[in-house]
């Protein structure tokens, strides 16, 4: 299997040629009022991480959606390749026994 691909093309930290200056892309994760996990809500542009959090606050929490914000520069996200869908995911399709549905859970255990 090949090495993980970046979800987005690499942007060199220092650009040799004077290109059109674009702010980097950031992926935004918000933790809602309920639950402990941060969920991906979208992306935005910002010059640095502080502004990315501020922009995320303005773009994604206007309607009281969140209690915590994570941002990560999109180029730092490693992603699986869509073309490897077959070898990566299809083998697990036929393995229903991996779902823990074949056990009787004792009442004493309670909700799981």
């Amino acid at each position: 299997m090949s090495s993980p691909n970046s979800a987005y093309p690499e942007t060199p930290a220092t650009q040799t040629k004077a290109k059109r200056q674009e702010w980097p892309l950031w992926e935004v994760f918000i933790r809602g009022q309920h639950g402990m996990s941060h969920r991906h809500v979208g992306s935005l542009h910002a010059p640095d991480e502080e502004m990315a959090i501020k922009n995320a606050r303005d773009v994604y929490t206007r309607r009281n959606e969140g209690v915590s914000i994570w941002v990560v520069e999109a180029r730092h996200i490693a992603a699986s390749s869509p073309s490897e869908k077959g070898p990566l995911y299809e083998p697990s399709e036929s393995k229903v026994y991996r779902h823990p549905t074949f056990f009787d859970i004792p009442d004493e255990v309670g909700a799981m």
Partner: peptide, 11 residues
């Protein structure tokens, strides 16, 4: 100038 500032200013 950019979408993010647009929304921030409107807020």
């Amino acid at each position: 100038p950019i979408l993010e500032e647009d929304i921030a200013l409107a807020n």
